[in-house]
Design a binder for these strands. Structure first.
Lengths: 192, 192
DNA sequence: TTAATTCTGAAACACTTGTTTTAGAATAAA
DNA sequence: TTTATTCTAAAACAAGTGTTTCAGAATTAA
């Protein structure tokens, strides 16, 4: 028997996420957040909680989106190898067209060592990313699309950690060709 | 005709670097810094400058140390391939024994997009890292220690960006075996 | 309509931030 | 020793930080 929350929580988390994503956790102030979210700090503290809690929700939201993408790709009827190669190409596009690098990577380096909850979310995200690669590589091997000489778990691990360096490279050099060449070499290794 | 600065600048920069390295730029306060450096903020501002300037010097110092290490390794009389493999093994040891990841990587993601000077220092550092790898790979190819089928520039670029992902992996999983396995695969690719 | 409840906005909170001021101690050259 | 200069320590600075308070507006169910 009382009024309801005026704002849509999902919308507001999305807005906050964009600010955190761009500026990082420590460089983002509560004013930055409430300005973007268009809510008063009292509403924020009444519903979501403090800055840390909000950040946790934002990272969770960020990884949820990735999760959906991986699931969608995994349920594709197309050949495992083509799904994998498409994914690599789209990952390259995200790197060279996105403005703010990857929030998961940035948060791993800036926050994960100090915030156990953020760390756990990123571990789960990394595990899903690994599983996505592992499933495709394994299926591609079983189908004979790629050589099965190498351990698929090792390949998945190795490739899973490769993207991060591409983000760093793009921050420093802003060179799309460099990223594309590395991606082609990456694919070549996989398919030979 | 006046007194001299009491503290040793190199010592003080080293101390500041350690704090920035561990906590990151934004999470480090001036008090954190002056406590570690054991100097008053007025002395800091009189000699070095503000927080940004201090950070720039610290990143410069960090990359200077790496530069020395690369030069030392490049002047080795041993075979290029063995120098390279040694370097990879020691890089792995740094990752799994170090407590605070890599300051260059952390700074690339946290600061490089907002501070042009830091970015330029990191670009120069990255260039030296690339050149180090390129020189060894090229020499190893010329000597016939490794296959020269692949473009050494591409290999150097690719390998240069690989380490970053290993740092992220180690932050999340703290799994030395995982890093070691990736390094062995890395070497295997190089030598086959 | 009433009553109970929960939300919102603005202001205030205490504390921390990066930086500057100031008074005086220290020191090198004359 | 004097003098000119530059250092240092402590305090003060204004602005910004994350968070809380509180009065009142809003809303739902009775």
């Amino acid at each position: 028997m009382a009024r309801n929350v005026e704002f849509n929580e999902a919308t507001v988390i999305q807005k906050a996420m964009e600010v955190f994503w761009k500026k990082g956790y420590n460089a983002t102030s509560l004013r930055d957040l409430t300005d973007a979210m268009q809510i008063n700090s009292s509403s924020l503290y009444n519903t979501i909680g403090d800055k840390q809690e909000l950040f946790v929700r934002c990272v969770q939201h960020y990884t949820d989106i990735r999760k959906q993408d991986w699931n969608k790709r995994l349920s594709s009827k197309r050949s495992p190898l083509s799904v994998l190669i498409d994914y690599i190409h789209e990952a390259v596009n995200v790197i060279i067209n996105g403005e703010d690098s990857c929030m998961a990577v940035k948060s791993a380096f800036e926050v994960a060592t100090n915030d156990e909850r953020v760390k756990q979310i990123l571990i789960a995200d990394d595990q899903r990313s690994y599983q996505f690669l592992y499933d495709l590589i394994k299926k591609a091997m079983d189908k004979g699309e790629i050589s099965n000489e190498e351990d698929p778990a090792l390949l998945a691990d190795y490739f899973n950690s490769t993207w991060t360096g591409w983000y760093e490279s793009y921050i420093l050099h802003k060179d799309p060709v460099k990223i594309k060449r590395m991606a082609e070499y990456f694919i070549k290794q996989l398919t030979k």
